[in-house]
Amino acid sequence: MNQHHGMTLIVKNTTRLVSGFIAVFGVYVALTGHLSPGGGFAGGVILASAGILVVLAFGREFSQRLVTETQYHLYDSSAMAAMIILALLGYLAGGFFVNFMNATSPQSVGESVGRLNSGGTIPLFNLAILVKVAGGLAGVFLALAAFRAGGRSQGADAPSVALPGGAGEKED
């Protein structure tokens, strides 16, 4: 199987058909995470698996044209930053991680229980976790796939020593 040109036509066509549905299902699982089993992590994994399917079927080069490694880094880190900022915004309502968007007290279940717009900040956290997990997991997979295809010169996601043997030059 040629890594650079992906798999057979059957796999490619099937991927074309299903990957969009998988991605939408991942977002759905994350968005209803406060009402039913699932949540940001599960949704993120499903969303990432759509991306992984594309990498497997079409090869790494194709998928890097869709989302580059830099973009994965940015999704990953900005989602994490967003999560912490959401937690810090809780200070406005009295403390760290306080659910400041909930009208009632955070301990009690809101009146609109069972609705999509309940839960205060929890759906927002789920959304941030969705982006974080999907970006992180797909990024990890892409880095590992890149490694297999071309070794470290292909932008593998790990640092390397600039000078072999740790022989640092004199600085300053």
Binding site: L137, V140, L144, F147, R148, R152, D157, A158
Partner: peptide, 17 residues
């Protein structure tokens, strides 16, 4: 565990290299 496993696999690939 996911994070640890991903790191392990990455290290294993590097070790193999």
């Amino acid at each position: 565990a996911l994070g640890v496993t991903a790191l392990m696999v990455a290290l294993a690939l590097r070790l193999h290299e």
